[in-house]
Simulated assay, not measured.
Amino acid sequence: MQIDGHHTLTYVISRYAGIEHRLAEKVAYAAQYVDEATNDNPIYFDNGAMYDRIVSAHKMLDYRNTQNLANHLVWIPFHFLPGNEGLPSGVEPDGQFIHRLICRPDSWVARDMLTMVASHWGQPYAAHLMGIAMHVYADTFAHQGFAGVIHDYNKVDNLGSSSSSLLQRIKNDLLSDSISASSPLGHGAALSFPDRPYVSWAYKNGEGNTIERDNTTIFLQAAEAMCKVLQWWNQGDFEVSIDNQRGLTTEQRSKIEHALRTIKNDDGEVRHAIWIEWLREGRFGFDPVDLTFDIDGENSWKQQARGRGFVQGGQLVYPYSKAFLDSDWKHFHDALKTYRLEIIRDVLPAYGICIA
């Protein structure tokens, strides 16, 4: 998914799950910020304190995308959660290891990831951690059929969509073929097709199987599943199964479907701006809200936490404040580190999957 899915759609679903505005805003911001946290340089403060962080995404032209370790630490845990071929823990599938790394919607692995996240419910970073989980969980639907490593399985052939013109299809084929040949990482060779909610498309995967996708149906399935998880998390009663939650009402599902089908633009930022406007107009059945997502600037989590940097002794430093310890930016990065550690150390090894 792109920013319209990870930010605004996640916010709407959170509100439909009964989460109040401020907390829903925090969950949605964290969900999108997973795609923005591309810098792992430590932060130095003017009093000698420092804070270390990790990345949860690389830009597509980042050299780190060619490094296996970087892919294991970023793309696998945060964007292409392994599906273990749809089998529960303790059941080791036959066949190649790559098949176990392929992302599958709402897998047993994903459910165990959610249980791990819920165990941190009482922590100050709980909402930020759930936002990260919502990013990963949504991507198990949108990124299904691809793996977060460079592998021939991710190659794409005969990429096409009825919504593309002949000229655009030719351009897509050329770009897709180039990526398939040089660096088939994740759904890179499928371009942005998996992330556009209104598109129906098809392709032939690296094993020669023809795959057909209706993204609106897939995104609606993700929305329903996310709503149940957020209802479960919001109640804090983890003895009750996720599957026993009511999920979306008919009216809520209809409003989401209308937005997914109606807001058509290849640019995720443009679609996001329309979702923001619809929220201001109160089109989703709750009071109008002015939702924003600022990566930089005074309203960003980053600047609110760190302030403006300045050079001290030849090094960029930030003014230290005790408020930093309880800032959303620090809580997000605390959650990011917690998530990656427990996914790699605990969740995936229970399935016999060893990464990084």
Rank of each mutant, 00 (worst) to 15 (best):
H99W: 15
A70T: 04
N39K: 08
D52M: 11
F80N: 08
F97S: 11
Y51T: 03
A70H: 10
P82M: 06
L73I: 05
T38I: 13
G83C: 02
G48N: 05
F97P: 05
L73R: 12
P82I: 07
D62A: 07
Q67C: 13
N41C: 07
P77W: 05
H79N: 05
P77G: 07
S89A: 15
K59M: 13
Y29S: 01
D94A: 15
Q32E: 12
A57L: 09
M60N: 10
W75Y: 12
S56I: 05
T66K: 11
H72R: 07
I76R: 06
L61R: 13
E92L: 13
L87Q: 05
Y33I: 04
N84Q: 07
Q32H: 13
V74D: 01
H79Y: 05
N68D: 13
P82R: 03
D94Q: 14
A57H: 15
G86P: 04
A49Q: 09
A49C: 06
N39M: 03
A31N: 15
Q67G: 09
D62S: 09
F78Q: 02
V55S: 11
T66S: 12
Y51L: 07
N39D: 15
E36S: 14
N47I: 01
A70E: 07
M50K: 10
E85W: 06
N41Y: 07
A30N: 08
H79K: 00
K59T: 11
Y29K: 10
P93I: 05
Y44M: 13
L81I: 03
F80S: 04
V74W: 01
I54E: 08
G48K: 06
N71Y: 02
L69F: 06
D94V: 11
A49L: 01
N68C: 09
F80R: 04
S56L: 00
G83S: 01
G86K: 04
G90K: 01
E92T: 11
R53C: 02
Q32G: 10
G86S: 08
A57P: 08
M50F: 12
M60T: 10
Y44E: 15
K59Q: 11
L73Q: 14
T66Q: 12
F45M: 09
R53G: 01
P82W: 06
Q32A: 09
S56D: 08
V74M: 00
D46F: 02
Y44A: 15
F78M: 02
K59W: 10
W75A: 08
N68M: 14
L87Y: 05
K59Y: 10
V91Q: 07
V34I: 08
D62H: 10
T66W: 13
A70G: 03
Y51A: 11
I76S: 06
G95P: 05
E36Y: 15
D40G: 00
V55M: 10
R53I: 04
D94L: 14
E92N: 11
R53K: 08
D40R: 02
G48I: 03
P77T: 09
N65G: 12
Y33M: 06
I43S: 00
Y51V: 04
M60I: 09
Y44I: 14
T38G: 10
F78D: 01
L73S: 06
E85V: 09
T66C: 09
V91Y: 11
L73E: 10
A49I: 00
I76G: 00
R53Y: 01
Y44G: 12
W75E: 12
F80H: 14
L81N: 02
L73C: 08
A49W: 00
I76N: 04
N71C: 12
M60L: 10
L81V: 02
S56G: 02
